[in-house]
């Protein structure tokens, strides 16, 4: 007799019964998703193909204990390249959901809301690409207030909310305002800014450099260029830019991903809007609008970002630039 009831029998069945898990068994382990994925640049153990194999082999506990299952940010670079049409991020979501039901939690850092500072304005909820933030009633200092809350299972710690919050009530662990400032200042770079070659500050998203050679080139830039890494260009608070310019930096370059390739879905689009507003503001103030520039680097743009930075440095050298 065949099985006739549709209740899940195994871990594999359970994942496949979850929305997004249906196509699991189509995978023939070609590895396209793995090599397309940028997560394994920072987390070499991350391997969606291997995770899918583990599910297919019903390795339930081992799958859940593997911290890498939480890393997929649903950027969907892999999905259009999968020859079997598997929507890998949906599948990873399905695995996460089953893990959550089993009582496991994401070990990744997440955004944190300072309940005393939060005014409940709801801007963060609208900015979050993952729907990880929502307002909830809570008693703070004896008063019932609506404040923002983070769903840890959804948050990918991109920091878009932290940059959006008008009261700086949200922080992302490794990329708090203080830590970003420290990265800029390290070695008293800003103090030296007023002398010597015009300084260029580059805010770079962590996901737009696919080529090893490009990543190497970023660490070999001249001393008057400072590269500050942020998870996403959407983490860049316009205040960062303004502060840097005020401190004597000649140019700020913000580098994000190509639209459609953003690691955090819409971070690059949000950053584009913010930088555009800054350009506009500078223009109205009679400043050089190009003091802040925004570039979007695509996954196929080998060598483009280092070249752009060097071009900018060369351009500054050949012209006299007014420094505020």
């Amino acid at each position: 007799m065949q099985h006739t009831d549709n209740t899940p029998h195994s871990f594999k069945d359970e994942v496949m019964a979850e929305p997004g898990g249906e196509l699991l068994q189509r995978c023939y382990s070609c590895g396209t998703c793995v090599s397309m994925c940028l997560v394994n640049q920072t987390c070499p153990d991350y391997n969606p193909r291997r995770t899918m194999r583990m599910v297919m082999l019903d390795m339930r506990e081992e799958t859940f204990r593997n911290p890498t299952i939480w890393h997929c940010s649903a950027c969907d670079l892999c999905h259009p390249h999968c020859p079997q049409g598997i929507h890998i991020s949906d599948l990873m979501r399905a695995i996460k959901n089953v893990a959550l039901r089993a009582g496991y939690e994401s070990p990744l850092p997440s955004a944190k809301v300072d309940e005393h500072k939060c005014s409940g304005c709801d801007i963060c909820e609208k900015a979050c690409p993952y729907g990880a933030l929502s307002l909830a009633a809570k008693t703070i200092d004896g008063k019932e207030r609506k404040i923002s809350q983070v769903d840890r299972s959804l948050c990918m710690a991109c920091g878009i909310c932290a940059a959006a919050c008008p009261l700086s009530a949200i922080t992302v662990e490794d990329y708090s305002n203080e830590k970003v400032a420290a990265q800029i200042q390290a070695g008293h770079w800003l103090k030296k800014a007023k002398s010597g070659d015009p300084k260029v500050l580059v805010f770079n998203c962590s996901w737009n450099l696919r080529a090893e050679a490009d990543r190497d080139a970023m660490s070999e830039l001249p001393a008057n260029v400072r590269v500050v890494n942020v998870p996403c260009s959407g983490r860049i608070d316009p205040t960062f830019v303004l502060t840097a310019l005020q401190a004597g930096v000649a140019r700020v370059l913000v580098a994000g991903c190509q639209p459609g390739e953003c690691h955090y879905k819409q971070g690059t689009r949000i950053a584009q809007g913010r930088m555009h507003t800054l350009n506009h503001m500078f223009e109205q103030m009679g400043m050089d609008a190009q003091r802040v520039q925004f570039v979007q680097i695509g996954t196929e743009d080998r060598g483009r970002l280092p070249a752009t930075i060097l071009d900018l440095v060369a351009e500054l050298k050949s012209s006299t630039v007014a420094v505020a």
């Binding site: 070609c30 998703c33 080998r302």
Partner: peptide, 13 residues
């Protein structure tokens, strides 16, 4: 090498 390439990039130089 067993593995389906996901992307090819070109060094323009």
């Amino acid at each position: 090498i067993q593995g389906r390439p996901s992307i090819i990039t070109e060094d323009p130089k």
